[in-house]
Computed example of a mutant assay.
Amino acid sequence: MILITGGAGYIGSHVNKLLNNKGYNTLVVDNLCESKESSVKWGKLVKCDLEDREGLEDIFNTYDISAVMHFAAFTSVSESVKCPEKYMHNNYENTVNLLNVMQEYDVNKFIFSSTAAVYGTPESIPIKESHPLKPINPYGESKVHVEKELEKRSEDYGLHYVSLRYFNASGDDPDCEIGEQHNPETHLIPLILDAAIGKRDNITIFGTDYPTPDGTCIRDYVHVEDLAQAHLLAYEYLEDGGCSDVFNLGHGTGFSVKQVIEECMSVTGIKFEVEVGERRAGDPSILVADSSKIREKLGWRPVNSSLTNIVNTAWRWHLKLNFKNHHYFND
């Protein structure tokens, strides 16, 4: 059985669906503080916080766990700047607690949900896994701490892990069974779509003076279904005896904030107000992945990650979430 922490969340729920569709048994462990029980449509759900050592031990004692996929984390860069201790405790210290229980029960396969934020301001584009880890916000720092802990445990205790450094996770389940619904929402595309349906008065661009062609930040958007596929490949890699490793997950193409807004207007056919605000702390100008390593070593391909497909699937989910009988969803 594969244990999925944070499996009621955005990426975890998509991975849970894929694993079950492939015939794997899953156990979702989630405290539901930022996710919904309704997203766990496959496998079994146990409500537990990762700081609860006794609760975790009971789970590992009750279920035959063969591997852990670890998604549970706080992920807002802006919040991490305001509340760094909160991020270090939840993202790092709670992960150490989980790893300690895994070690106690001789579970040694671990797939970690990491982030491009570990790189900070990139020294070169596209970013390779060998790039120095110099995070510029506490969110990225918390993930670097976990990666260093994994490396140490791999050397000292024989932990076999894969760390997957996501670039911008985006898009939604094309079947519209699950999707992105953060509260509060912090991701760009659903915020733009909120403006498209009138849930927000406008969308704000945070900074137009970055050293990019149109002055707005550039990011590498990768569809959540492609991320899910990477987790399946990583699990199969470890099952086949693969050594601990780190991989970037990105499409390899960057789009600016303005380009994403324009694509959303094109897909929805709706014009909405766009405002310009000040830069946010902790936002690098450009983050684009070199994902050649996982393509070559695990055979991963981001086949769903065109910007148009990302926005289309996000738009269909957004309409279902907000207007369940909307004609777009029924088309």
Rank of each mutant, 00 (worst) to 15 (best):
L298A: 02
T308N: 14
G299A: 00
G299Q: 06
G282R: 06
K293N: 13
I294W: 08
S285V: 08
R280C: 02
E296I: 02
S306M: 01
G282V: 11
E278P: 14
L298T: 05
E296L: 08
S306W: 07
L298Q: 06
W300H: 05
A289R: 05
R301Y: 11
I286C: 06
I294Y: 01
S291D: 13
R301M: 14
W300S: 02
E275F: 10
I310A: 07
E296T: 13
I310H: 02
L307Y: 05
E278F: 11
G282L: 06
R279S: 04
V303M: 01
R295P: 03
S292F: 01
G277F: 09
I294K: 06
G277L: 07
G282Y: 06
S305Y: 00
L287T: 02
I294P: 10
E296P: 07
V288R: 00
R280Q: 14
K293M: 09
L307Q: 01
V276R: 13
N304V: 05
S291N: 13
W300F: 03
V288L: 00
T308Q: 12
N309D: 05
G299M: 13
R295H: 10
A281W: 03
D283C: 14
L298N: 00
R280K: 14
E278Y: 12
P302A: 03
P302Y: 02
N309S: 12
P284I: 09
R280H: 11
A281L: 12
D283I: 10
L307R: 03
V276Q: 08
G277A: 09
A289L: 10
N304C: 08
S305I: 09
I294T: 07
D283P: 02
N304M: 10
I310F: 04
R301E: 15
K293L: 13
K297C: 11
S285D: 13
I294D: 09
K297F: 06
S292K: 12
G299L: 03
V303Q: 08
P302W: 01
K297E: 12
D290M: 01
S291R: 13
E275V: 13
L298I: 03
I286F: 08
V276I: 15
N304G: 09
L287I: 05
R280L: 15
N304W: 07
S292H: 10
D283T: 11
L298Y: 04
N304Y: 09
I294H: 09
L307P: 00
I286W: 03
G299K: 06
E275M: 12
K293W: 05
R280F: 10
D290Q: 08
V288H: 01
V288Y: 00
S305L: 02
I286V: 15
V276A: 06
I286N: 06
E275A: 14
V276T: 15
A281Q: 15
S306L: 08
V303P: 05
P302R: 01
D290K: 08
E275P: 01
G277K: 11
I294C: 10
K293A: 13
S305W: 02
T308Y: 13
S291C: 09
E278L: 11
D283Q: 08
T308D: 12
D283Y: 08
L298H: 04
I310N: 05
E296A: 13
T308G: 05
S306C: 09
S285R: 04
V276P: 02
V303D: 13
E278V: 14
V276N: 03
V288S: 03
E296N: 15
R280T: 05
G277Q: 00
K297A: 11
A289Q: 05
R295A: 12
S305P: 02
W300E: 01
D290A: 04
S285A: 15
